[in-house]
Nucleic acid binder design. Structure first.
Lengths: 189, 189
DNA sequence: AATAAGTTTTGACTAAAGTCAAAAAGAGTT
DNA sequence: AACTCTTTTTGACTTTAGTCAAAACTTATT
């Protein structure tokens, strides 16, 4: 089974110098996390940016008595708790491993020092931030313009294996419908 | 009446050198736009990033037979069509002046040359991008967790003068409800 | 294999929002 | 002031989604 590769991903955005790649490698930690591991708990500050070599992850938060999924992420994607990592404030969301993972990560301070010591890395950082920002806007647009059924089909298209990894309730809250409603949507094919 | 100031806003994020400030001033264009001006038409590539010194603006797009507001922005805020400006591809959204504006702007190429010639400006650019990215996530969360009435009240709190500037239909589509529904929400106070 | 625990589906009912049409209110023009 | 054009509100009805509870189905554990 193929795994995603961080340096390949970065180099596909803009070729990085050897010395920059070496410095990244020097900071990088690679770890395995089994299903149900918690990468971030609400109240903590999101300190690390993770790259998913392998596995599947979701973020969620609590509001009232309910739980809401913020996103799902799979191989080749970067994860942070956006609000907390960028603002350096306690997170309102949790990050949880849904499928055994291999993750590479560096922490916030190391990332800042990469930007400082290698100004050209700002380009890469900016492009990644912009790409995920575009995805975030797309999410609001999908909530605004797609039916629940279309949102469900889009999620399955984006993450084909998601039904084996996430529960219906986790998926339903991401789609902004109740679990019973999603179950009925599925029942009609 | 007070107006917002671009250089003050940038300096409040990180103090900029005189030479950088001079270069920004050299690129900056200040223009007035009356209500109903179109700053960007769908199909065009968003070329300029605008700073609102004064006035009120919205973005919207068409899907099926309907129109949807993406955002409203007022004094002191930056505007681009996120997808188009960052990806350099044709915009699906339109940007329209709702209240006579004074805008300062530079174009995409000039912005890139600022980043290149003044690497420290990347910090400012990154922080602004991060802040707006956080707001974009917040929008999806509000759609997910707030009732239509709460979303309406939050919008009024964020933009107190909006009722004098935008029509109910424009506001309703932003809130993801039909105009008749919003009218009924308002009727019960 | 049997039991227990958790997840998903189904049913009956309620609440909320959408639709279509008409009336009322507001703004702008002659 | 009367007229036109546009926006907002209201009414009657339909459709969609939410709620609560129970049944069916899975998965893990003993």
């Amino acid at each position: 089974m193929e795994t995603a590769n961080l340096l390949n991903t970065l180099n596909s955005i803009a070729i990085l110098s050897e010395s920059l790649q070496d410095q990244i490698k020097g900071h990088l930690i690679e770890e395995h996390f089994p299903r149900k591991s918690i990468l971030l708990k609400e109240g903590q500050v999101s300190q690390r940016i993770y790259f998913i070599k392998k596995g599947f992850i979701r973020a969620y938060y609590h509001k009232g008595n309910s739980e809401f999924s913020t996103w799902f992420m799979g191989e080749g994607e970067f994860i942070i708790s956006v609000y907390s990592f960028f603002s350096r404030k306690p997170s309102f969301e949790n990050i949880e491993v849904l499928e055994d993972c291999t993750l590479q990560s560096i922490n916030w301070d190391q990332l800042q020092s990469l930007y400082k010591q290698h100004p050209e890395f700002n380009l890469t950082g900016r492009i990644i931030t912009e790409q995920y920002y575009i995805r975030s806007e797309e999410r609001a647009i999908n909530l605004q313009t797609l039916t629940a059924k279309q949102r469900y089909e889009k999620l399955l298209a984006d993450y084909p294996g998601i039904l084996q990894k996430a529960s219906l309730g986790q998926i339903a809250s991401y789609l902004s419908v109740k679990q019973e409603t999603l179950s009925r949507i599925r029942a009609k094919h």
